[in-house]
């Protein structure tokens, strides 16, 4: 069994604990080893690039160097923000081996030789092999689940090579392998607002509304996410967004937006694979998939 380096990031240790728990459980069932790299630091996300570019590259460089020192050639992170930031820094540090950022890393015993590849669990769990293993291990066929897979932006572009930057399919394939119906819709990678929901609420909420509205229109009864921030925006702000816009009515069809369970994709896999219900953390969600669980 191959063991990957694992980089959790901050969100799965606070508001998205169920994401990490189910990720680790699911990987164990499917025989994928994840070992947390020691003493990792936060990636700085998009915020750091707007304040200090050299530091933004260097803090991610520290994580890449640590992974290399701890003998990992692949580093897996469940957060799309961490994924983009680590990949962006990785590309830069490899392309500029003699610049001051690499030299500064060298001086504090963090020489980075550029041997690490950054990956996201979605990529590992959607390989042909993993899909077959998953399909064979399904214990709770997901009858009646119509899942809209929401990928968000930073996981699929521009430093990513896992799927199409606008019309990705890998999460949909996982949902289908588990027996759910994958719902197609046009906004799979449109921005969820990122931190705008907390900084410029009017704009952030409008972006969340447009996503929820499209997802509703295409008949989904659940949403799968692959990023803690996307999940937070859709899950935690959903009720506010529905009540704020159009009096709760979808502008296009005049239908009322249905509050949907917004679920980390690993929670869904864990459910289908028959993991114990209380370990899945469905109760942590603002809208639980209770009805779907009861019906399937």
């Amino acid at each position: 069994m191959k063991t990957y380096g694992y980089y959790p990031g901050c969100s799965v240790r606070s508001t998205s604990k169920a994401y990490e728990r189910t990720l680790l459980d699911v990987c164990k069932v499917l025989g994928l080893g994840l070992k947390e790299i020691e003493d990792w630091n936060c990636c700085g996300a998009t915020a750091y690039f707007g304040v200090d570019k050299a530091m933004a590259m260097a803090v991610s460089g520290r994580n890449l160097a640590l992974a290399e020192q701890q003998k990992f050639d692949e580093l897996v992170t469940p957060c799309a923000g961490c994924y983009l930031t680590l990949r962006k820094a990785n590309e830069y540090l490899k392309d500029h081996p003699n610049d001051h950022i690499n030299k500064s890393l060298d001086r504090v015993d963090l020489h980075y030789g550029g041997t690490v590849t950054v990956r996201h669990p979605l990529e590992l769990l959607s390989s042909e092999e993993a899909l077959k293993a998953m399909a064979a291990a399904v214990k709770r066929p997901m009858k009646g689940w119509k899942v809209a897979s929401y990928y968000g932006c930073q996981l699929v572009r521009p430093y990513s090579d896992m799927d199409d930057p606008y019309q990705p399919l890998i999460m949909d394939r996982i949902m289908e392998a588990l027996g759910a119906q994958a719902v197609d819709y046009p906004y799979k990678t449109r921005c969820c607002g990122g931190s705008l929901t907390g900084t410029v609420e009017d704009v952030g909420f409008r972006l969340v509304y447009m996503l929820l509205s499209e997802i509703n229109k295409h008949g989904a009864n659940a949403v799968a996410t692959s990023c803690p921030l996307c999940h937070f925006n859709l899950d935690a702000y959903q009720s506010k967004v529905i009540s704020r816009f159009s009096g709760g009515f979808d502008q296009a069809g005049g239908r009322r937006l249905e509050p949907l369970p917004i679920i980390h994709f690993t929670q869904i896999i864990g459910y289908a694979l028959g993991l114990e219900l209380k370990t899945l953390g469905f109760k942590d969600l603002m809208v639980t998939p209770g009805r779907l669980v009861a019906a399937s």
Partner: peptide, 11 residues
Amino acid sequence: WLCSSCYSCTV
């Protein structure tokens, strides 16, 4: 300050 870093323009 409104740019949310979704990189759609860049791609």
